[in-house]
């Protein structure tokens, strides 16, 4: 009797040990394939691109190093400076307006209004539309011959004039308009979640202390939303830098090359102009730009203790 009890206890212990070990290892086993895939297909190809940027690759990759030749060619291209200027305009306005508009919409929606359940998805839905659809729809809407301008003139407002889409100086702003239309609702959702996370007691305390609504938002609510600002900023910045499909669908980089962005530049040099080396070097510059923004954020996030 006592021996059988001992045996079964030992068996149970062995089983438990096996199960513990499995539990220890399971996450690693499950994650290993995706980890290996990411290592190869993300970081491997980043390194490959960096390598190619130091070669004179034309149509197909060549592996003979050529120093900074591609970078010199890149920075001799007027359209690259056009692309850099445009990404600055687009990035600043897109991120800035999205955050401002998202915050405003979130604050308005947070006033415990009726019909919030209906309004919220209406603002959020543009996010569900692909950039190609957004771009094409806005192209029709903004084209003076088919869209807004023509409609207004047909309705009798004959002096109405809105030709940004076909104006080389203003076309980049139409991309901002379409981009903001798409992403502002998403920002709103982020801020709304942030607002719902603020302790109502603090707001009440501020009210009792006699703070005005404006002061409450400026001094309490907005500072409390700091992490949301940071997330929104990071998400929008990388969307701005990699935006490609929106430009292709909306303006095709034109009129002229007035809406060229680094992403469209990179694609055309790598794949249609057979200057893969220059394309790769522009991709590396883009990566460094993204890294310059993301790394400080990661650094600050990792330094902060986990709450």
């Amino acid at each position: 009797m006592s021996t059988t009890a001992l045996e079964s206890a030992a068996a149970r212990r062995a089983q438990a040990g096996w199960r513990d070990r499995l539990q220890d290892w399971l996450p690693r086993i499950v994650l290993a394939p995706s980890f290996a895939i990411i290592l190869l297909f993300v970081y491997g190809f980043i390194l490959w691109t960096v390598y190619l940027s130091f070669t004179k690759s034309k149509m197909m990759p060549v592996y003979k190093l050529a120093g900074f030749d591609s970078y010199e060619r890149l920075f001799a291209q007027p359209s690259w400076y056009m692309a850099l200027g445009n990404i600055a305009i687009f990035g600043i306005l897109y991120v800035g307006i999205c955050i401002a508009l998202g915050l405003l919409l979130a604050i308005l929606l947070d006033q415990k209004i009726r019909g919030e359940g209906v309004l919220r998805p209406i603002y959020l839905y543009p996010m569900a539309v692909s950039f190609i659809v957004t771009g094409t729809a806005w192209k029709w809407f903004l084209n003076p011959g088919t869209g807004l301008e023509k409609t207004m003139q047909d309705w009798g407002w004959t002096s109405f004039h809105f030709d940004w889409l076909v104006n080389t100086d203003m076309a980049i702003y139409t991309i901002v308009i379409a981009g903001v239309w798409q992403a502002a609702g998403f920002c709103m959702a982020m801020f709304l979640a942030g607002l719902r996370g603020i302790d109502g007691e603090i707001m009440k305390a501020a009210q009792i202390d006699g703070a005005s609504t404006y002061a409450t938002y400026r001094r309490i609510v907005i500072p409390a939303l700091r992490p949301v600002f940071l997330s929104a900023f990071i998400v929008l910045t990388h969307m701005a830098i990699k935006s490609y499909d929106l430009v292709i669908a909306l303006t095709g980089g034109g009129p002229g090359n007035s809406t060229e962005l680094p992403s469209t530049f990179m694609y055309s040099y790598t794949f249609t102009r057979n200057q893969m080396g220059v394309g790769a070097s522009s991709a590396v510059i883009m990566l460094m730009t993204v890294a310059a923004i993301i790394v400080p954020y990661l650094y600050s996030e990792l330094k902060e203790p986990v709450r």
């Binding site: 080389t168 034109g254 009129p255 002229g256 090359n257 007035s258 055309s268 249609t272 102009r273 200057q275």
Partner: peptide, 20 residues
Amino acid sequence: VPPAIQNAMYDVITKLFNGQ
């Protein structure tokens, strides 16, 4: 001409035609 030069030509022609 090869694609690289062809596209360099495009750049100038389209910028002229669009008033840049």
